[in-house]
């Protein structure tokens, strides 16, 4: 279980996050929604260790690792897809070619552009590559910031399938998104508004699936 306790963050006089606390159980998907500038990305950046919180803490109750897929392209454009994998992947060169990783590659269609430079790839390819790298690291928790933004339907479906498989294997996801296809995977959905986190949906208490109408109602 990943625990977040009383996280606060402000930039100058702007209070971005106030007393944020929630838990993410293994195999759960947590959705965070909110209008632009509500602090979703800041929260994920704090959880990924990119920026420190003003106060509060977050931890795994047992040991665990985190992968983070930010909204912007986190790849180095001058390098090939393979060189980016080598940079961000913790394992050896031999490990990159192991069976587990080959499955990830084929699910996300990485083979078709593995030797191409990232700057020549489309937005969808870059997103798939970033996600592949995140999965290759075998994390206990994946933080996703708008993972399906500006992708075509086919690409979205492939990524959703991968996320489903990951959850089925016991992985945990915390996703900041406006996409109902991702929110459909969520066990809990929180609304981040004025720096405060409000629980809006809990799958254990609702038999019905989360819909776009629910989402609009929340905002």
């Amino acid at each position: 279980m990943f625990v977040i306790e009383n996280i606060n963050k402000s930039y100058g006089k702007n209070n971005i996050l106030s007393d944020i606390s929630f838990n993410a159980q293994s195999g759960n998907c947590i959705g965070i929604i909110g209008i632009n500038g509500s602090g979703k990305s800041t929260l994920l950046n704090i959880l990924a260790g990119c920026i420190p919180p003003d106060s509060g803490r977050y931890y795994f109750d047992t040991e665990g690792t985190i992968s983070y897929l930010p909204q912007e392209n986190p790849l180095i454009d001058d390098l090939t897809a393979l060189d980016n994998i080598r940079l961000w992947y913790n394992g050896s060169k031999k490990d990159i070619r192991n069976e587990k990783n080959q499955i990830i590659f084929s699910k996300l269609g990485i083979h078709t552009f593995i030797n191409k430079k990232v700057k020549t790839l489309s937005g969808g390819m870059k997103k798939r590559l970033s996600l592949a790298i995140a999965f290759m690291r075998e994390p206990d928790l994946i933080l996703l910031d708008e993972p399906l933004a500006a992708l075509d339907m086919l690409c979205k479906q492939g990524i959703i399938k991968c996320l489903n498989d990951y959850l089925a294997q016991g992985g945990t996801i915390i996703a900041a998104t406006h996409e109902t296809s991702i929110l459909n995977l969520c066990d809990k959905i929180y609304l981040l508004k004025n720096g405060m986190l409000h629980m809006k949906y809990d799958a254990s208490e609702n038999d019905e699936k989360f819909t776009e109408a629910d989402f609009c109602k929340m905002l």
Binding site: N45, I66, Y68, P70, E72, P74, L75, D77, W88
Partner: peptide, 17 residues
């Protein structure tokens, strides 16, 4: 161009690592 090629996301990822 080589020195200034990292965008904010790459820097964040590096920081996270």
């Amino acid at each position: 161009p080589f020195l200034k090629s990292y965008n904010r996301a790459v820097k964040n990822q590096l920081k996270a690592n």
